[in-house]
Design a protein around this nucleic acid. Structure first.
Lengths: 214, 214, 214, 214
DNA sequence: TATGAATGAGGCTTCATTCAT
DNA sequence: AATGAATGAAGCCTCATTCAT
């Protein structure tokens, strides 16, 4: 087989079609989570993925495992976008804006509700993805503050929550036209974050620790 | 029973009881919808309300009817707040801000997810409450625009969606500390709406018709 | 209503048909446990009882609760038999024999396997039934020993285990003719217990504590 | 089996592997049947045996085939013990006792429950093992009766059932300490079988035909 | 009218068995 | 020949809804 050279491990090769199946399950799950919420019948996910229901359980021992995989993969993709933006040499606030819109497109917020029910927020995989993403966002915000483009009294949690909330499917809509307004409203939120501040904010800047404190 | 004294005539007693029951059901439902989401077991609502489950069905033929009543009552209370603010003679934008925060406190957004599943958005009662609320909000926004305090390129739908999204329970949190950040982020959003505009917005102003088009 | 006089409690009367249903479920469960083992489909029990499956869950929140009720009721009936025998003034060993055969007929042993899987042996109800039964058996054995009819080197656990084991459906037989041989073999076992001892026994007398030590 | 010696040529290497696999499967199955009962997941047996699940199916077309092999191997080992005892010239009843305890140690009874569910009791292999074992036991009992050491009113089925029932895991115990009491109670049963009889037995002696009649 | 009970449909999960590598 | 993966058929349990008191 051609992968022998690139993967000389003795661990049994994870069969090609099995990998494909796993990928299809994750994809189907992401779509259905976004469209229908966290409580989609597992069998529906299986059907959309074109596999038997038990195959889902083979790959993900419980619901949490599947949810986690989906969430982590979305966070990772968002992190990649952030890394690219940080690598570029553009305007700091503009990078932040682009990041926010990219994250929204990734359905970062749409997936959050999935976490709500009986989900271990502290799983290592999830933590790792969060830490990575947060570090990147912190750097972007730091740059923008240093450039005097971002209010000083906002912090990482403010931006992340704003993105998450505003990019969620507007509820009451059957998830159609989700993006129709997201960019507008996210932009309004970002405008409100721009320096100079147009007024004081109630409460204190939401830090990374506050997010953890959930 | 103690109601006998206050209702000495023949048919008045059961009605008083029934009304109280209905009220308790709606209250319990609102609380549980906010706390636990739209899919709370019906029996739980009944238990919280202190009535039998069948009593819920007697008062609300189907789940939609109950949800609708809850949503309408919240909208109505929000409308009342708007009316008071309009009656007052304060600063136009400040009135808008107060309204937004009041609406958020009413859990307007928290209840939106309830609407999502198979819910007739066009029921007369709901329409009536919406029309009433939208008219009031439109007047408030008109005033603020006239005063040069509100961007011209935003419309009613922008504000309502912003309030709804930002006031929803942040997802992933078990609905605790819901309000902890809402005021901050709603304020950032409102700051972004303030005139003069800090940049152009993607898409077109979201009108009342757009909300309908969902 | 006519039951008001006979049941003047303020606790809501447990509806007549509901009680009947509960009883039918327990009866069906006992039969099926004996016939088919502990892992009979719950739905089958419901069908045999002539009720919907959910009714079983209404009455017994989990499988354990149903099993426990069945086991306790059998133990209680066995205890009643023991009490009658103790009240009578017959031969001590003969009373013991009668008790053993009665217990066997009650399927005391047949129900034991039910306990095996993930069953809380220490539930209060179960403990109470056990304590009651054991005290009675201890008295019967004490009498027989005092009369010089029962070996001194056997204890309560020896008798109870013997009854339990020998009265179980012989395995491999579809539970038909269960009783066909039970009386014979139980009698052989009892004959072996009779004084004077025909030889020494390996191990130590099995006490009530040993049963607990499972 | 012994055909390996008769065919030591070209094809013998893979056969050795296959034989070892088969042996490991049977061993694993016996252990798990005894420990956990008849309904152990097939995949678990495979894992304990260190082979893929499909390999189990290759060797044993259905569950019955595996169960049968396990049961037959245990019966055969018990028969071997009987043969040795018959070859020896010791006391007849003592030989019977030793046989009974050996059979109990072989978990003869522990495996019986495995037979219960939808199992063809009349498979040739099983019949052959039974016939062999029964013939041996019949001879042992015949000797003991001839020596005046064994009651006349008991037959082969009485002994075999007694052994099987008393050597089963006591149910309710997670199969721990299975043997803790078995020897004691088996001895009591054997003492009851000893001549002279201490009383009459209900029913008729259980013959080999009665066992078949199940 | 209000209640508690009953029901059946549906989701979750496991497992015996078959298939593709 | 041997493996790991895939499958579908149950079993368990919950819940919206209806019924009988």
């Amino acid at each position: 087989m051609q992968t022998a050279a690139s993967a000389p491990h003795k661990v049994s090769r994870p069969r090609a079609d099995a990998l494909r199946n796993r990928e299809r399950i994750v994809t189907a799950a992401r779509e259905m989570f976004v469209e229908c919420g966290a409580d989609v019948p597992f069998d529906e996910v299986a059907r959309r993925a074109g596999v038997g229901n038990a195959t889902v359980y083979r790959n993900f021992p419980d619901r949490e495992a599947l949810v986690r995989e989906v969430v982590c993969s979305v966070m990772d993709r968002t992190s990649e976008a952030a890394e690219e933006l940080l690598a570029g040499a553009g305007d700091a606030f503009e990078a932040l804006e682009r990041f926010a819109h990219t994250a929204a497109e990734q359905r970062l917020g749409a997936l959050c509700p999935v976490l709500s029910t009986a989900f271990d927020q502290h799983h290592p995989d999830l933590e790792a993805a969060r830490v990575r993403l947060e570090a990147l966002v912190a750097r972007m915000m730091g740059r923008a503050k240093a450039a005097g483009q971002l209010r000083d009294d906002v912090d990482l949690g403010d931006l992340l929550i704003g993105i998450a909330q505003l990019s969620r499917p507007p509820a009451g809509t059957g998830c159609v036209n989700v993006d129709r307004f997201v960019r507008r409203h996210l932009q309004l939120f970002l405008d409100g974050m721009r320096a100079p501040a147009r007024g004081s904010l109630p409460g204190a800047a939401v830090t990374v620790e506050d997010l953890r404190a959930n």
